[in-house]
């Protein structure tokens, strides 16, 4: 399958880079102490497993809460847009504007409002996945073909039946695409939101930086990347199961 082959190539390239990196490191290690060898990063992950896990747990909770709330809000906005297209014309620019606010600028404002804790990072995570969901779901809810809507009308289906049997399923590929984009975005958003906090992966990165713990910094980055990627893969798998009839499951993308 095309997807599996793509991942094999990715993995080979990744392993190649890591091996070359390790070799280069051993040859010229002393000159660049700011770039630890992969083995050193691996060692750091093991050494700092407890603090990484304790902080990661918090970030995971915030990311998940943010992904759920941001996506639900995006879905709700999309539903409103599809139901009242006039609102879309007047409010779409507002949504784009909200999306254009840099998350690093939002984080301190939210921190002032809500104080240190889980709220601010969760909201930043939610903001990060709100936009992809709003845009994709708006397209998705309009994806049902005119002929399939004709069919439902000819069958004397109610609005709700048409939604449940045609519009909803037809939007699913778009919703899943938004979730695939949203999962890594939520992890990023939560991390940014924790930057000035007292716990979480973002905080760990920040404190490792100011304390010049280079290996911990890299170790945390690797873990955060892995988590964001895992989120993406989770929804890729879910898409293949839920949208078995869709273009990505049939190898058309």
């Amino acid at each position: 399958m095309k997807g599996a082959r793509g991942w094999t190539v990715t993995l080979i390239v990744l392993v190649g880079v890591v091996v070359l990196w390790e070799i280069a490191e051993r040859l010229v290690a002393a000159r660049f102490p700011l770039v630890p060898a992969p083995s050193a990063i691996g060692g750091a992950i093991v050494r700092f497993a407890t603090p990484i896990w304790l902080n990661l747990r918090l970030t995971l909770i915030e990311s998940a809460l943010g992904l759920v709330s941001g996506s639900l809000l995006g879905l709700a906005v999309a539903a409103v847009f599809v139901r009242w297209p006039r609102l879309e014309r007047s409010l779409y620019n507002l949504i784009v504007t909200i999306h254009s606010i840099p998350l690093v600028a939002v984080a301190p404002i939210l921190l002032i409002w809500f104080g240190v804790g889980i709220t601010a990072p969760t909201i930043v995570a939610g903001l990060a996945c709100f936009f992809p969901m709003a845009v994709n779901a708006t397209r998705g809810l309009r994806a049902a073909s005119a002929s399939s809507l004709d069919l439902m009308r000819a069958l004397d289906a109610s609005q709700i039946q048409t939604f449940l049997r045609v519009r909803g399923p037809a939007s699913l590929p778009y919703v899943m695409a938004a979730l695939k984009l949203g999962a890594p975005a939520a992890v990023l958003g939560a991390t940014v939101g924790e930057w000035l906090g007292t716990a979480g992966v973002g905080y760990l990165l920040f404190s490792a930086m100011v304390n010049f713990q280079v290996e911990l910094l890299w170790a945390t980055m690797v873990i955060a990347t892995g988590v964001a990627l895992a989120g993406y893969l989770l929804f890729s798998v879910a898409e293949r199961v839920l949208v078995a009839w869709g273009p990505s499951a049939r190898g058309e993308t």
Binding site: S145, S147, S148, D150, L151, A154, L155, D156, R165, V166, P169, L172, V243, W245, G246
Partner: peptide
């Protein structure tokens, strides 16, 4: 539901 309609496009739901 007195009419059964067949369109040019079969409009089968792929799911």
């Amino acid at each position: 539901r007195l009419c059964g309609v067949v369109f040019q496009d079969p409009v089968l739901l792929p799911w």
